[in-house]
């Protein structure tokens, strides 16, 4: 029999940890923002994001894509560790005991509460060894120079390292569509490096996400 009292051990009922009105706190007296654990937060305004792109472009030219991807990986590595620590603390249990639904929903909510848009996972090609990630309303590619090339390098880095750590497999991430080249959202494919090898060339030749996925799947 289900005992309601037992469900309420220590009276807690963990829910939406990243609910925005709970998660973000601010003190105008100190000029500080922090999260519900008291860790510092920063609001990065759009002009700074734009400046990151234009500043890096001025200083490093074409290499700026690689630099941003690297920054994304570093950022993602620490983000993953912090994210896991926060959830484990909140649920008062080792992360391994947490269901995947709760874990991923927290991840999506965390993404939104930070104002990074909406992140969705596409598991259509899971059996073929690919995981799709869609990011809508991305502030990063909205601030990036608009052109013909995907500009989601920061996100590519953070997503790649996040899922690499989550799955314990060395995954690579390739971007197939981008709002900076007038697509509806940013789409990424995660998979093993050698299976993703043809993607960049297909993106460069202007192929759409669906077509790229078809080719990848057919290549087996």
């Amino acid at each position: 029999m289900v005992s309601v009292a037992d469900l309420l051990t220590d009276g807690r009922l963990p829910g939406n940890y990243f609910a925005q009105d709970l998660y973000v706190r601010g003190s105008t007296e100190l000029g500080l923002l922090e999260n519900r654990r008291g860790d510092r937060l920063l609001a990065i305004p759009n002009p700074l994001l734009q400046a990151i792109y234009s500043g890096l472009d001025k200083e490093t030219g074409q290499a700026s894509h690689l630099v941003l991807y690297n920054c994304g990986r570093w950022w993602g590595k620490n983000f993953y560790a912090r994210f896991c620590e926060e959830l484990a603390d909140y649920y008062k249990q080792p992360l391994a005991n947490l269901s995947m639904a709760e874990f991923l929903q927290s991840f999506q909510q965390c993404w939104k509460t930070h104002g990074w848009g909406q992140i969705h996972l596409d598991i259509t090609y899971r059996d073929r060894g690919f995981l799709g990630v869609e990011i809508w309303h991305s502030p990063f590619t909205a601030a990036a120079p608009q052109g013909q090339k995907p500009a989601g390098d920061l996100e590519r880095g953070i997503v790649e390292i996040f899922f690499t750590q989550l799955t314990g497999r060395e995954l690579r991430c390739a971007q197939t569509s981008c709002t900076a080249k007038s697509d509806d959202c940013n789409r990424f494919i995660l998979g093993l490096e050698k299976r993703l090898a043809p993607v960049d060339a297909m993106v460069a030749s202007g192929q759409a996400h669906q077509a790229i996925m078809q080719t990848l799947v057919q290549q087996g």
Binding site: L33, L42, I44, P45, N46, Y69, G72, T113, P139
Partner: peptide, 16 residues
């Protein structure tokens, strides 16, 4: 538009 980040973003930028 703003995005919120932890200190990890600054570290990521500098390390990268």
């Amino acid at each position: 538009r703003n995005v919120l980040t932890s200190e990890d973003f600054i570290i990521g930028l500098l390390e990268g």
